[in-house]
């Protein structure tokens, strides 16, 4: 058996999730020993050839060209894993999905006519089948390592789908929502960040996106009782996972 061939791809994103992979400094030598890095623009300028066993895909689809590119990546890949908020939910740039793209173009660029873009920024899973999704802005290095190791061992990655509160309580961090009425998104947000913000006495703002079965309306009711307006509540959700939180609010399913 040869080393599995891995490719790392970037669509519309800030490259931060690819850096999370490079930030696995202690494990990088193991990584290149266990995988054949077939394509990784952030790390090497080797061109892409042949098929891949696993592809890590960063970024959302926001241009016509990316739409065909992501299909091409899928066609040559056995396992496709999205890494980070952009690839998994459309990213911060999906804020334009709720506005007029021409207004944005005219406000930002001196020559808006030369900008080629789709009116919406969409997650990879809107375009091709995705085998596994890693959330986070950026994605957690530990979860990346766990996913890559699990791929080699053919096991399910030990990555939670439950709320951030679970991790927060395990760490024994005093609850900002209960003890200070802070508008913390922890109860509806996926664990995985290592409780970065609440550890520093800042409420969660949802980098890891909605947890499985998030009851967002109930949490917003709590925020409204402590004085937040409808507008403030909407702003809390409209960040790097805006699409995913909005979708989770409207999803039909058994309560």
């Amino acid at each position: 058996m040869k080393r599995p061939r891995i490719g790392v791809f970037k669509f519309t994103s800030c490259d931060g999730c690819q850096l999370s992979l490079l930030n696995l400094e202690d494990e990088l030598l193991d990584f290149v020993g266990l995988f054949q890095v077939a394509y990784f623009r952030e790390a090497t300028d080797r061109p892409l050839r042949g098929h891949l066993d696993i592809a890590l895909v960063e970024g959302s689809v926001s241009t016509e060209r990316q739409r065909s590119h992501v299909v091409a990546v899928r066609e040559r890949t056995r396992y496709l894993v999205t890494v980070g908020a952009c690839a998994t939910s459309g990213g911060l740039q999906a804020l334009r999905n709720w506005a007029d793209i021409d207004d944005y173009k005219n406000a930002v660029y001196p020559s808006p006519a030369i900008i080629e873009t789709l009116p919406c920024s969409t997650p990879i899973s809107d375009h091709v089948y995705v085998d596994y999704e890693l959330w986070g802005c950026p994605v957690s290095s530990d979860e990346l390592s766990e996913t890559l190791g699990s791929f080699l061992l053919d096991k399910r990655p030990g990555i939670p789908g439950y709320s951030l509160c679970m991790e927060c309580k395990r760490k024994g961090i005093p609850c900002l929502l209960i003890a200070r009425s802070a508008p913390c998104l922890g109860p509806v947000t996926r664990a995985g960040c290592g409780v970065l913000c609440p550890s520093l006495e800042r409420p969660c703002y949802g980098c890891f996106g909605p947890k499985e079965g998030a009851n967002i309306d109930s949490l917003l009711n709590v925020f409204r009782k402590s004085g937040l307006s409808h507008h403030d509540c909407a702003l809390l959700l409209d960040k790097m996972n805006t699409s995913a939180y909005r979708k989770a609010r409207t999803r039909e399913g058994p309560p």
């Binding site: 193991d30 990584f31 439950y162 509160c165 309580k169 109860p187």
Partner: peptide, 25 residues
């Protein structure tokens, strides 16, 4: 909210899960 806070603070809740963690090394 299905956040699980009640179970984490409950002094009788004992449920837990096991994970096998393997670093690349």
């Amino acid at each position: 909210l299905e956040c699980g806070n009640c179970t984490q603070v409950c002094p009788t809740c004992f449920c837990h899960s096991h994970y096998d963690f393997v670093r690349l090394a």
